[in-house]
């Protein structure tokens, strides 16, 4: 499987390392969001939708190619981070590394279950696709 993203985790951490105020963190996150590329109409379909009350997330895994998208920019930024974690770690570890990363970068509020933002659903969907094969999404 090809590498999902140009940015690796170190590069992402680097971008956030100088951020002091919350505004700067979110500016970086919104910049990261652009790394996800343009919205793909083929992906944004009901069949690929992961339910979230506040925003939509689409996921597809076809021909060993994982694609993720959201209609909310902040979630798109978080998806770039999620993909970078999947790039570096086996699935279960990627999930905990993703949580650790968000906590380190001051974005832990997005992990809260009170925000039904679709992120929890992505991990469930990924585990369902992998069916126990932790290496499914690894390079």
């Amino acid at each position: 499987m090809t590498k999902l993203l140009q940015l690796d985790l170190d590069a992402i951490e680097q971008r956030f390392s100088d951020c002091r105020a919350w505004e700067e963190r979110y500016r970086q996150l919104l910049l990261l969001a652009k790394g996800l590329g343009k919205a793909d109409p083929a992906l944004r379909q009901e069949a690929h939708l992961i339910d979230g009350c506040e925003s939509d997330v689409w996921l597809s895994f076809e021909q060993q190619q994982l694609q993720l998208d959201s209609n909310a920019k902040i979630i798109r930024g978080l998806l770039v981070m999620l993909l970078a974690c999947l790039d570096s770690y086996p699935l279960s570890q990627a999930q905990s590394e993703f949580a650790a990363l968000l906590t380190r970068l001051g974005l832990a509020q997005h992990l809260s279950e009170s925000r039904n933002n679709g992120l929890q659903g992505i991990w469930q969907a990924l585990h369902a696709i992998a069916q126990g094969d932790e290496q499914t999404f690894c390079r």
Partner: peptide, 21 residues
């Protein structure tokens, strides 16, 4: 602007409101 993006940034500024359906 997607309401969830707005709600996240409003929350950062100490505004408690509801977003979604």
């Amino acid at each position: 602007i997607h309401p969830q993006d707005a709600a996240t940034l409003l929350d950062q500024q100490g505004i408690a409101l509801r977003c979604g359906h």
